[in-house]
C-alpha cells in the first residue's frame, strides 16, 4: 500500500464524513484554532511592525525579539506549558502565536521600511499628518509584502495547529495523533492530506485578498 492508497481508503470510508470525529467537525475545529491564532498574532505583529517601520526606530530590538521567538520550539513549548498549566485552548494558542508573530512582525517592518521615501516626503510636504501618511501612503504600497508575511504565518499555523491534538484538543491533528497510536496509516495520511489542502486553500484566499485589496497601481497591471 502506498500513500495514495491510504488517502483513497481514508476518504472513501463513509464513516469519516460525519459525527463527532467526522471530517467536517475536525476541519471546523482546525479552522477555528488557526483563525484565532492568526488573529492574535496579527493583533500583536501588525501594529508593532507598522509603527516601528514608519518611525524606523527599534528595528534592531525587533529583529532580536523575532530571532528569539523563532528559536523557541513550538512542540517543546506546548508540552512545557501543558505540564505547568494543564490542558486547554490557551496552552495551544501560546506556541502558535509565538510561531506566527515573527514572520508578521518582521515582514511588516521590512515592508514599511522598503516603501519609496519620495512619496512619503511629498505627503509630509503637503501637510499630511504622520498617522495618515502611515495608513494612506505607506500601508497601501507595503500591503503586498505585509500580506505575504501574514500568508506564511497562516500556513505555518495551519500546519502546526495539528499539535493541538497532542494535548487532547480537536482539529485535523486528531487523525494524525490517533493514527500514530493506533498504527492506522490511513488516518495519518488522510489527516495530513486535509492539512495540506487547507494550506492550499489558505494560499488561494490570500491570493484573492491580494487581488481585492492591493491597488492596481501597486500591482502594476
Amino acid at each position: 500500500m502506498n500513500v495514495l492508497d491510504f488517502a483513497g481508503a481514508f476518504f472513501g470510508d463513509g464513516a469519516h464524513w460525519h459525527g463527532y470525529d467526522g471530517i467536517p467537525q475536525r476541519l471546523l475545529e482546525h479552522v477555528q484554532y488557526s483563525l484565532l491564532a492568526l488573529g492574535l498574532a496579527a493583533l500583536i505583529g501588525l501594529p508593532v511592525g507598522l509603527v516601528t517601520g514608519h518611525t524606523g526606530r527599534g528595528g534592531n530590538a525587533l529583529a532580536l525579539v523575532a530571532t528569539a521567538a523563532r528559536a523557541l520550539p513550538s512542540f517543546g513549548l506546548l508540552v512545557l506549558i501543558v505540564i505547568m498549566m494543564g490542558f486547554g485552548l490557551l496552552p495551544v494558542m501560546i506556541p502558535l502565536v509565538i510561531l506566527a508573530v515573527p514572520p508578521i512582525l518582521v515582514t511588516t517592518y521590512e515592508a514599511v521600511r522598503s516603501v519609496d521615501p519620495a512619496p512619503v516626503d511629498a505627503a509630509r510636504g503637503m501637510g499630511m499628518r504622520e498617522g495618515r501618511i502611515l495608513l494612506q501612503v505607506e500601508l497601501p504600497v507595503a500591503l503586498p509584502l505585509i500580506l505575504s508575511g501574514l500568508r506564511s504565518a497562516a500556513i505555518q499555523i495551519v500546519s502546526t495547529a495539528t499539535i493541538a491534538a497532542y494535548v487532547s484538543l480537536g482539529g485535523l491533528g486528531r487523525y494524525i495523533v490517533d493514527g500514530l497510536y493506533q498504527r492506522d496509516y490511513e488516518k495519518v495520511v488522510g489527516g495530513a492530506t486535509l492539512v495540506a489542502v487547507l494550506a492550499l486553500v489558505t494560499l488561494a484566499l490570500f491570493w484573492a485578498a491580494g487581488r481585492l485589496a492591493v491597488s492596481p497601481g501597486v500591482r502594476r497591471r
Binding site: 519609496d116 519620495a118 512619496p119 512619503v120 516626503d121 511629498a122 505627503a123 510636504g125 503637503m126 501612503v137 497601501p140 504600497v141 492591493v214 491597488s215 497601481g217 501597486v218
Partner: peptide
C-alpha cells in the same frame, strides 16, 4: 511642494 521624481502615490 514638488520633488525630484515627483513622488507620486503609486496606489
Amino acid at each position: 511642494y514638488v520633488i525630484q521624481n515627483a513622488g507620486l502615490f503609486q496606489h
